[in-house]
């Protein structure tokens, strides 16, 4: 595995969508390659940031109550 393979598979590594073997290969590469690790951590932080920011919205209580009454 070289840096460009690593970069190409980084999204799928981040999303845990590689095979076990590929996950391991990538992990080994990251352990020995600070620039790729840095990039990986950046992508992971960004993914987390999007999740945290978008998760702040919760369904209004009134909607929940209304649906409960309609549905049950």
């Amino acid at each position: 595995m070289n840096c460009s393979d690593c970069k190409e598979k980084l999204d799928r590594y981040l999303d845990r969508e590689l095979s076990n073997t590929e996950m391991l290969e990538l992990q080994l590469h990251l352990e020995g390659c600070p620039p790729c690790t840095d990039n990986y951590e950046f992508q992971a932080s960004l993914k987390r940031l999007v999740k945290v920011c978008c998760e702040q919205d919760k369904a209004p209580d009134a909607l929940r109550e209304k649906l409960r009454q309609i549905l049950t």
Binding site: E55, K58, A59, L63, L71
Partner: peptide
């Protein structure tokens, strides 16, 4: 319905 409503936040978001 109860189970479906556990996913309300996801759907609303």
């Amino acid at each position: 319905a109860e189970e479906a409503l556990t996913h309300l936040d996801t759907l609303y978001r």
